[in-house]
Structures are given as C-alpha cells and as structure tokens.
Design a binder for these strands. Structure first.
Lengths: 335, 335
DNA sequence: GCAGGGGCTTGGAACGTTCCAAGGAGTTGT
DNA sequence: ACAACTCCTTGGAACGTTCCAAGCCCCTGC
C-alpha cells in the first residue's frame, strides 16, 4: 500500500542470496547459476522490485541519460528533431529526457541547470536562446551539442542546416517559374534568420535580380508573417513572389494575402522554410525548404556519443543540406 | 578540462570548513555565520561547483521531479497541457521531465519505466495508451494522474474534459444556426472519441433530430477526417454541417470538402474539437470546442501535490467543462 | 591425496549528499 | 565563577547501488 520501494537487499533476503548476486542478476551478468538466477528473478517479481536508477547512477558515475533542452515545445520543428534524437539515443542504450524553457531565457537556464544537476551524460540544446557563456560553462562539465544554432563556443559541437543554401533554393525555384520581383519576409532574431536573409540576397544577385530584391521585417511567428505582408502591401509595387523565413510566418502571410483579396499562388507565390507538419497539411500545401530534422537529431546524438564513448574532444560543426519541397503555393507569375 | 565534477568536499576543503557546512549553505539554511557563508559561496563559485541531484535524491528519498509521459510530442494538444504542468510544478518547487512514447505502446512502457526508475515523485500520463495493468502497477510506487483519459484503475487520479457536454455544445451551436442535417466523423479509438460520439447522438435526440443524425468512421488524424468526408460524399444526401471528433481530423475534412468543390462554411459548416493552435491559425479559423488544456495540466499537478505533500490516498477524478469557440467554419445553412 | 583451477558467490568499500546528535564558543544571569 | 543558554559548526551514519578482491566448493590431473 505505502509507496514502499523494495531494494536489492529485500530481494536478496527473500531469495536467500547476497545483495551482490541480486545486483548481478539484475544487470544480466553471465556467470550466475541458473537456479539462483531463477530464485532472484522470482523474488524480484513478487516484491515488485524496480532498480533504483538514482543509486545506480551515483556509483557508476554515469546516468545513461541525455538531456534535451527545447526552446519551444510547441514548435513542431523541434519535436521532430526529438524523434531523431530518441531513435538513436535508444539504440545506443541511452534515454532522452526533455525539458523546455517555457519560451523564456530564464526558464531555459533553469531547465538546463536541472539537467546538469541530474548529471546527464550529454546535453542537446535545440534552438535555445541561451547566452554563450552559460553554454560554454555547461560544456565544461558534460558534452553539449547545439542543434539548429551555430556557435563559436569552444568545446561545443553543433549541427545546423545550410540556411544560405536553402534560401538560395527558394530563389532558384521562384526564378525558374519566371519570377523576378521577389520579396523576403525576414525572421528577425530567429535561429538562422540572418543566414536566410543573406542567402536570399546572394541568390538574387546571382540571378542578376538585386535591383528587385526587397526585404521586409518579420519574425518566426504567424503574426510576424502577417506583419511582413502588411509592409509589402503598404509599400505598393507588389512583388510576384514572397519568400518567408519560416513556415509559421509563411502561414501568417498566406492568410494576410487572402484577407487582402490576393490569391495564392495565382496572384502571388509563397515559399516558407522548415517543412514542418504545418506546411504539409492538405489545406495549406505550402511550398517550402525542408530541413532534415530527423537526421539532425540523429546526428546530434552521434556527436554526443563520439565524446562520451569514444572520447573525442575536438569540436565538430556539421552542416546538413536542405531540400526544396514544392507544393501548391508557388506557380508561374501572372501574365 | 576533464569533465571533473567538484563535490561538496572539494568546496569544503577550499573554504576551510566541514562538508556539512557547505551542504547547509547550498541549501540556504538560515543559521550559518555570514563570514563562512561568504567563504563557501566563493569557493563554490571558483570551483564551478554544481550540486549533485543524484546523491541528494538518494539520501532524501525524493527527487522533486515530476515525470510527464506524453503519448505524442507532435500533438499540440499535449504540449499545451505541459505548459500548465510546468507552470504549477515550478511554483511548487518541482521540475518536470518529459518523455515520449514515440507513439508506440512498447515505447510508452519503456519511457514510463525510465521515469519510475529515476524515482520521480509523481507521474502524469497524458493521453497514453498504456494498459491499465501497468498503470495500476506504477501507481503502487508513486502517485499517478491521467490527463485526458478516464480510468477505473484504483489509486489513480484523472482529469478529463466533459466530452459529452462538449459534443453537445457543438450540436447546440449548429442547431442555433439553423442546421438540422448534421453528420459526425467519429474518432475511432482516440481518447474521448466514444464520449464525443455519444454526446453528439444524445444532443441530436434532445433537439429531436435523431432521424437526421449520421455517424461515419474516422480517427484523430488528418487522413481520418478526409476519409470521413469521403464516406459522407459517397453516401449522397449531403448534410449541411459536420462535427468532426478533433481538430486535426477536421482540417483533413476541410481540405477534403474543398477538393470536392464544396465551400466551407457556405456549403457546409464544420466544427472540430480541442481548440489546438492549429484551429486558431488565421488561414484555418476552425470553429471548435476548447478543452482548457492549461488548466488541465495545472490541475494534474495539484492532484499530484495533494498526494505527495498532503498524503491524500483516496482517488479523485476531475471533469472540466469545455467551451465553444466560434470562428469561420460555421454559418447558417444555405437557403 | 593434493595442488591448481574454474565457476559462483560474498562482504565491504565506494559514490556525494543530507540529517542528526553532539560539541565548542560565547553570553547571560545569579 | 559557574550553570544554562544560544548560536554555529562538525563528524558519522545513512541512502541503494556497483565493483572488486577474496572465498568457497568441486573438479581435474598427476
């Protein structure tokens, strides 16, 4: 009835063996006699014994846990990265523990501290806004990898997608459809926003379109995308296509254009970034740039494992290629 | 350089005091001399000391951790429940650790075991499909509350929304607009689907509309909603309104109707359930039934706290009232 | 019949904390 | 001057594991 946790010693007593033997059985050690093994297993079952990971971690000096700090649990981008993380963590006999910063920097710092105090064997920071001092600090006590954010911090690994190249793909696609007047809705301080903007500008230049390239401010939210469109409309001289810095903002833009009586893609083409589940919804069908989130998560764990198990110490910074996904929001320009 | 974790003893040596004193300072105990307190704090800072939660938990026999098991990290419904959980857990000096079952029952069982081995002080299961034997089992070793799933399991608390009432609200709303021929796209085995169906049928009866009430099969996915619509279209004799068992399926339905050349809400009204962020997207603007997820999360933690801190043992099962949210997918029927 | 093994099993010492009983140094009252 | 306090500080015993050195028992070979 009481929430009594039987220990290895209770099991030992019941099975009439030493605690060491029970410990061996629980860990699946090979050289244990069949009869006693059976007795121990039976006793454990009867008592409802469950190993105490806390005690185990204390003596082994490792937890077999990876901590995942997510900046935002609500952004499908991150939760899809987690899928990749869980997959490869699990196959390496590690478990993943997720915490979220509740979208605030202070919350993130606290969540990271919780994980560090728990002595996780490695830390994956996905899209956090933590200052690099805390990150460097954390990295002195356990391996850290940043996903979807680049860093110069010493001793920290990172895996990002090539935002510049991705933005270029968006422009190439629109150019191939015949667009020349293209506007970019900026992502503000969002992770990767700056590279996407410079990738956009670079690609426009490459196509000789620098004179018709425009950038309007925005951010990574639905409202940010809508605000960007508002700026486009106010400016007059409508472009024929808009490249928005992420999917959520692109959906905000989509709605804003519709509200203004402009049809997508007939009047205006729209490209997003990330290829989250949102973009794939049938009702939305957003043309976008896919970041291989699953792969990025898997890779993050591999970087961790290289440090934990293989003892690597030199930092590695991986860049993964994005990919264009064409859906229904892009078409040749009118006329 | 090495990932050396300084201990309380290292700090004590450096500050020239006993380990007990360091322990007291770290816990913020009141009766410590100012001068030594300062010395200890300085030493800890210099060494980069971080308390070891593992050791602490072992001796205190409590972790100050609540474990959250999410059936699906990608369903915004659950992540919004987590917001509520984190909020009240934090203010009660607990931390929340999230794991996900990766959408598979075996994964859920494993994730729960991880949490239990970590000796979390309480467990919140949100929308899991775990069999009630495992749940009852878990409940024998730590407080467990189920969110968004009812249970009869002894010793387990639960907090759910009133699905029957919510479905009734959807019907009432449609009836008030003038609809009489209403079809329900069923949610299959999804949590709450059965109650929503029976709530739908009950409300139709209440309005004297039982003869025009139809139910077609579906599930909680986008594809499930689309399939439901297909069934509606095939059956001929189109209803003027459709109540779909959750938002995601409703969005699938929305797309399916559009594909079939039917305008929402002009030709057909559509109501979802849950009021996830998806439904609120401007481009979608789905009329739906709001489950107060935030409140449900908060309440879940409170139930846990009642058991952990106040020693309650009698199970409690809370039912929270849903709320109609009218957006753009409902309108009076044509003609 | 005994040394040398091998196969199993065992007790004890960690691991880094917290908690408790007890100790030391002042201070106050008589 | 000493008892009785108060205030601060301390060492040691937990907590539930793992790991290691050592032990027991029985077998094998000579």
């Amino acid at each position: 009835m009481a929430s009594s946790h039987p220990t290895i010693i209770d099991v030992a007593r019941r099975a009439g063996v030493s605690k060491s033997l029970v410990s061996m059985v629980m860990r699946g050690a090979p050289n244990v006699g069949v009869e006693r093994r059976a007795r121990v297993l039976a006793a454990a079952e009867e008592l409802g014994y469950r190993p105490n990971a806390v005690a185990r971690s204390l003596v082994r000096q490792r937890t077999n846990l990876f901590g995942i700090l997510l900046s935002d649990l609500h952004n499908p981008y991150f939760t899809e990265v987690v899928d990749g993380i869980e997959e490869s963590a699990f196959s390496a006999e590690y478990r993943a523990l997720i915490t979220s910063g509740g979208r605030q920097p202070a919350g993130e710092a606290r969540a990271m501290d919780t994980l560090l105090q728990l002595r996780v064997d490695g830390l994956i920071l996905a899209g956090t806004v933590l200052d690099s001092r805390s990150i460097r600090n954390a990295a002195r006590t356990c391996p850290v990898v940043l996903v979807a954010r680049a860093t110069r911090a010493a001793g920290v690994d990172s895996v990002v997608n090539d935002d510049r190249a991705g933005a270029g793909m968006a422009v190439d696609h629109l150019r191939a459809l015949g667009h020349t007047r293209i506007t970019h809705v900026d992502g503000g301080v969002g992770a990767g926003a700056a590279s996407r903007r410079s990738g956009f500008l670079g690609a426009m230049r490459r196509h000789g379109l620098e004179r018709s390239a425009r950038v309007v401010p925005g951010d990574f939210t639905e409202a940010g995308g809508a605000a960007g469109v508002k700026a486009v409309l106010v400016a007059g001289d409508l472009p024929t296509a808009v490249f928005v810095s992420n999917d959520l903002a692109a959906i905000g833009a989509l709605h804003a254009f519709e509200d203004a009586g402009l049809a997508v893609p007939e009047d205006i083409s729209l490209v997003g970034y990330d290829n989250t589940a949102l973009a794939a919804l049938g009702h939305i069908g957003l043309t976008t740039i896919d970041q291989p989130r699953h792969e990025m998560g898997r890779t993050g764990v591999e970087l961790l494992l290289e440090r934990v198990e293989a003892g690597r110490t030199a930092p590695r910074h991986l860049v993964i290629a994005p990919r264009l996904v064409v859906r229904r929001t892009t078409a040749p320009p009118r006329g």
